[in-house]
Simulated scan of single mutants.
Amino acid sequence: MSFLPSPNHLLGADLWTEDLQRIIHSRASVQDLQQWQSFPTSLCHMVEWATVARDPTSTDRRRSHLLVYKTLPIPEPYGVLYPVSVRIYGFLDKFCVGDFGNWNGDCVRAAYAVQSLSLCSAGNATAWRNQLDRLNLAASFASRVLKLPLPSIQFRSHLHMQRRVFTKRPIEAQPPIARDVPVVRNVTAQNANIPKLPDHPWEWNGPVEILERSEDGTITPIHEVLLSRGDFVEVDAEFDLVVVRTQASKSHLRVFLTCKQVLRLQTARIPTEAPSSSLRPTEVRRMRVIRTTEEVSSPWPPESTMEEPDATSMSLRGRRHSSASMPSSFAM
Rank of each mutant, 00 (worst) to 15 (best):
150 L>E: 13
184 V>Q: 05
200 H>S: 00
206 G>H: 02
156 R>V: 15
167 T>K: 01
220 T>Y: 02
194 I>G: 06
202 W>E: 00
201 P>G: 02
204 W>V: 03
195 P>E: 09
220 T>I: 06
188 T>Y: 05
230 G>D: 03
157 S>E: 15
153 I>P: 08
189 A>F: 13
161 M>C: 15
218 T>I: 13
230 G>E: 04
203 E>K: 00
197 L>V: 07
154 Q>K: 09
163 R>K: 14
205 N>F: 07
232 F>T: 09
156 R>T: 15
175 P>C: 02
191 N>T: 15
154 Q>M: 15
206 G>W: 00
206 G>V: 00
214 S>V: 08
225 V>W: 03
214 S>C: 13
159 L>R: 03
151 P>S: 08
228 S>G: 01
223 H>F: 01
166 F>L: 10
232 F>V: 12
194 I>M: 08
188 T>H: 10
207 P>H: 05
228 S>H: 02
193 N>E: 07
159 L>G: 05
205 N>S: 07
226 L>N: 04
211 L>P: 09
227 L>T: 03
234 E>W: 14
194 I>C: 11
216 D>P: 11
181 V>S: 01
222 I>C: 01
151 P>D: 05
212 E>V: 12
177 I>T: 13
195 P>V: 08
227 L>K: 02
186 N>A: 11
223 H>A: 04
170 P>A: 06
218 T>M: 12
160 H>E: 10
162 Q>H: 15
152 S>L: 10
162 Q>K: 11
178 A>Y: 06
171 I>C: 10
208 V>D: 01
217 G>K: 14
155 F>G: 10
202 W>K: 00
199 D>I: 02
205 N>Q: 03
203 E>S: 01
188 T>S: 15
221 P>I: 07
221 P>H: 07
188 T>V: 05
166 F>V: 10
210 I>T: 06
150 L>P: 15
167 T>P: 07
208 V>F: 02
174 Q>H: 11
183 V>S: 07
213 R>C: 05
181 V>Y: 00
222 I>V: 11
178 A>N: 00
182 P>D: 13
224 E>V: 13
232 F>A: 08
218 T>L: 13
201 P>I: 01
207 P>D: 03
178 A>H: 04
203 E>L: 03
232 F>M: 07
230 G>L: 04
153 I>V: 15
178 A>F: 03
184 V>N: 01
158 H>N: 11
233 V>K: 10
165 V>C: 03
168 K>H: 12
227 L>W: 04
229 R>H: 01
210 I>R: 03
189 A>P: 08
161 M>R: 08
192 A>Y: 14
223 H>C: 05
183 V>Q: 05
227 L>M: 04
208 V>S: 00
201 P>S: 01
177 I>M: 14
160 H>K: 10
191 N>E: 14
181 V>E: 02
178 A>L: 05
200 H>A: 04
174 Q>I: 08
184 V>S: 05
193 N>D: 13
226 L>K: 00
187 V>C: 08
167 T>Q: 05
176 P>I: 07
176 P>F: 14
159 L>V: 12
170 P>R: 05
193 N>Y: 09
202 W>N: 00
220 T>P: 04
